[in-house]
Structures are given as C-alpha cells and as structure tokens.
C-alpha cells in the first residue's frame, strides 16, 4: 500500500492534498459532495479582524486556462470564525485545519493570529501577506522582503502554532522574500498566491472586473508556480506548500519533486468540485507506476 503521508512542521497529514484558501469556504458545501475527511487538511477562507463584504461585483472573469478574481477577502471576521465557523467545522472535519489570516496592517495579522491560539483544531496558521485584491494596484506585504519579514516576526511573537507565510508571485525575486520570512521565524511558506491579471469587455470597452484588476489563477499558472516552488525550495530550509494551477495527481508529484512538502489545490475546485478526491484516488496509481513507495521520499528530488 502506497504511503502518501507527509509531515508538515510536526503535523502528520494522511496525504499532501489540501484545498487552498478561498476555493473551499469552510468546507460546509464540499462536505455534501464527498467525505472531506479524506483530505490531508483544508485551508479555510481568509479571515480579517473585522467582517468584510469585499469588492464590488463583477468579481470574476474567465481567461484561457484559468480565471481572474477580485473577491477582496469577503469574510465574517475573526470573532465569527472562532465562535461559529470553527465549531461548525469540528462537526464534519476531524483533522486539524489550516487557518488563513489576512490584514491591512501588522497589528491586524497579530490580532487574528492571537485569536486562533485557543483553537486546538487549527493545526497551522497561513499568513496571507499577498492578497492582490485589497490595495489598488496589488501592492501588499509580500512585495518587499522587509515588510514580509516585519509581518512574519510580529506574528511569530504571538503564537506557538506553525506559521506559513503565503507569498506573492508578483515580485522580482520571490526567493529574497522567502529568505526574509525564514530569517524572521516562519515555520514554512505557501506559494504562490495569484498573479495579477485583467480582462476587458470589448463591447463596453471597460475592464470586466469592477475593481479593474484581479488575481489570475487556474491551470495556466502551474508552470509559473512550479518554477517558483523549485527556486524557493533551493533557497530555504523550511517546508513549502506548493500552490498554483494544480489539477491532477501528476501536478502534485511535480510540485513535490520541485520541493513542496504539501500541495494546495485552488481554482480547480471551483470548476470541478470533486478534483481533490480524484487526485487522492489517482495518486497511489501514479506512485505505483513511478515506483514510489513513500510520497515523502520525492520531496525536492528534482533539485
């Protein structure tokens, strides 16, 4: 029997497949589609200090091989997440979850992280310093190694839970940002967030998305994400969750060979709600074909 388990900062996952934040809600809809306890874990919708409605609509545009979104971190706020969503999740998901926190200021990241300390079901905190949709032009804390390190250090001081910093691809050198986060105390890195993109409605001669630009995700970005995971894995010693365009078991294998310890599946969940189950079912077959006994053995072997 193929061993798909991986260990992420001491947290043992049955397999490396994790739905990415913003594509899985709090799992409530997906639990009606399939038994989500087969997942390695899941990363729930990004949470800010205050409730947020998010950006004006239209928030979605399509493109070849992917989509562009500008949701703008719509969420009920950290208090509602801790008091309502986490207890709801506990009823249908029996494994540790990954909490994704967002923010406009260092103090907001710190506040959200501290609020999660008392929740034993949160196994990892993913710190989203790279949301492209909360500042016009896509600027964020992941744009600069200095600000990325500042958030990392501040969050590090207030929690003992493993923290993964979610990095932006919209930078000149993602490895510089990655190294700065490692030095500031990050336990791991999640990469990549969405690429900046846009579409124009040619009949109206206006951007499709109300906020004009958004985050580009989906299959088309896989090679970009893979390259960044590959380079980052060579530059840091902390574990990486590989994200970006993952849609098949083969993509998972590639991400892990590039250096990812676990792999998040994002936009594909929105077009094929069963994709994570399909990947988990397909992985042992592909492992057998490749003579891989333990999936953990392939982490970074393409380096």
């Amino acid at each position: 029997m193929a061993d798909m388990s991986v260990t992420l900062c001491g947290l043992r996952l049955d397999n490396p497949v994790i739905p990415a934040s913003g594509t899985f809600g709090y799992g409530a809809e997906f639990k009606d589609f399939y038994d989500i306890n087969i997942l390695g874990s899941f990363c729930f919708k990004g949470t800010t200090k205050e409730p947020r409605f998010g950006n004006p609509t239209p928030r979605i545009a399509e493109c070849s091989g992917g989509m562009i979104n500008s949701i703008g971190l719509q969420n009920p706020g950290i208090e509602a997440v801790v008091s309502e969503e986490l207890p709801n999740i506990a009823a249908y998901f029996k494994k540790p979850v990954i909490a994704n926190v967002g923010g406009y200021s260092v103090s907001e990241f710190v506040y959200c992280t501290e609020m999660l300390n008392a929740s034993p079901q949160v196994g990892i905190i993913e710190v989203n310093i790279s949301c492209p949709n909360i500042h016009r032009g896509g600027a964020n804390f992941a744009s600069d190694p200095k600000t990325a390190a500042e958030v990392t250090a501040a969050v590090r001081r207030v929690t003992k839970k493993p923290i993964f910093i979610k990095l932006s691809p919209n930078v000149t050198s993602i490895t510089d940002v990655a190294k700065a986060c490692e030095e500031a105390g990050a336990d791991g890195l999640s990469l990549i967030n969405t690429l900046l993109g846009m579409r124009i409605d040619i009949r109206k001669a206006r951007p499709v998305i109300a906020n004009k630009i958004g985050g580009f995700s989906g299959r088309a970005i896989f090679p970009v994400a893979l390259r960044m995971v590959y380079d980052t894995a060579a530059a840091v010693r902390i574990p990486i969750m590989g994200i970006g365009g993952v849609a098949t078991a083969r993509d998972v294998i590639e991400m892990m060979m590039a250096g990812a310890t676990a792999v998040q599946v994002g936009a594909e969940n929105l077009r094929n709600p069963f994709v994570c189950r399909e990947i988990i079912e397909e992985l042992p077959k592909l492992m057998a074909e490749l003579n891989i006994e333990r999936l953990a053995d392939i982490i970074g072997i393409a380096q």
Binding site: E29, K45, P58, A61, Q74, A267, L270, P273
Partner: peptide, 16 residues
Amino acid sequence: ERMACGFGVCMGCSCK
C-alpha cells in the same frame, strides 16, 4: 451575477 463555482464557495457573486 458573474460567478465562478456556482455552489457557494468562491464568493464571486455576493450581493448586499
């Protein structure tokens, strides 16, 4: 409204 998933998770089609 323009939507991505159609089943309630992406928050693409929210309205007040």
